[in-house]
């Protein structure tokens, strides 16, 4: 399956009192990957600002801007066209011997190291480690992890916060896609499987007409290295991501891919109103 999507992602902030200046970074431009081609993209900001673009350490397109006039609302619109197909996998699989090879561990050290977001308690780590001890292939180990997440974490929004770590989410037992991703990543790393955090959009409708618009959502999922990188979506129990997944950024955890980050001087803001409209174009 190969198709074209138009994505319009708007974020509207309203401030209770005036903001005097603000400094912001936006990571909302889809990536070029082996199964995704970025055809066009643009970011618009209101109030008007000069935009500066660069690619960060993880290869994500970043747009930076600062505002120095008083304002009490801020709108950011990211529009893009992408062509996506289902990822092709070659079926290369790791053996436990390869996984424990020091040169393998070194090459993937960036995605094997625990970060603040991807910490789990020693108890949880040893529980998952012992549950995979008799399992041979990387992919079977992955299944064990997915199973563990399914049993111990349930989807509910409004309980965890943007700063919650994997262990906090596991303690509560509830979370959103960000927490599912962090917990899954933490467990995968603890059993020696390199894992990374992916942010992007998920198309909600399986088989739309050309020209049909749907309300999409910002989403987060996981890529794991089992001999090659494959995408899984733990919060939707999807064991292979497909053409419905639009990749924007990849990193060690949420901190590396944050879609919008800013500091500003002035009044408190209300939670933003975010809309993602996705339209099939071909």
């Amino acid at each position: 399956m190969k198709w074209r999507l138009e994505i319009v992602h708007t974020t509207k902030y309203t401030y209770q009192e005036d903001v005097y200046s603000s400094y912001n970074e936006v990571r909302m431009t889809p990536k070029n990957t082996s199964n995704q081609l970025l055809l066009s993209s643009s970011i618009a900001v209101s109030p008007r600002a000069s935009l500066y673009n660069y690619f960060d350490y993880f290869g994500t397109a970043v747009t930076y801007f600062d505002l120095h006039r008083r304002h009490n609302n801020l709108d950011i619109t990211s529009s893009s066209h992408v062509e996506i197909e289902d990822p092709r996998t070659r079926g290369v699989r790791l053996s436990p011997i390869e996984m424990s090879d020091p040169s393998f561990m070194d090459a993937f050290s960036e995605y094997l190291t625990t970060t603040t977001y991807t910490q789990v308690s020693n108890g949880v780590a040893s529980q998952i480690q012992s549950s995979v001890s008799s399992v041979e292939t990387a992919e079977d180990r992955l299944s064990k992890v997915v199973e563990f997440v399914r049993e111990n974490l349930h989807y509910r929004s409004g309980i965890t916060m943007v700063s919650s770590s994997a262990s906090e989410a596991l303690d509560i037992g509830f979370g959103v896609c960000q927490d599912f991703a962090h917990v899954t990543i933490a467990l995968l790393r603890s059993i020696g499987l390199p894992a990374r955090y992916v942010s992007g959009y998920l198309y909600p409708n399986k088989d739309p007409e050309v020209g049909e618009s749907s309300t999409g959502e910002s989403h987060a999922w996981v890529e794991v290295f089992v001999g090659e990188w494959i995408g899984i979506d733990p919060s939707n129990c999807v064991d292979r991501t497909n053409h419905l997944y639009v990749t924007v950024a990849k990193g060690r955890d949420y901190g590396d891919v944050t879609p919008f980050r800013g500091v500003y001087f002035g009044g408190q803001s209300s939670p933003p109103i975010v809309t993602v409209t996705m339209t099939r174009r071909a």
Partner: peptide, 13 residues
């Protein structure tokens, strides 16, 4: 200058 106003950081999901 800005320093009369609180510095806030914004990270939403």
């Amino acid at each position: 200058s800005n320093f009369n106003y609180p510095l806030r950081s914004e990270v939403w999901r």
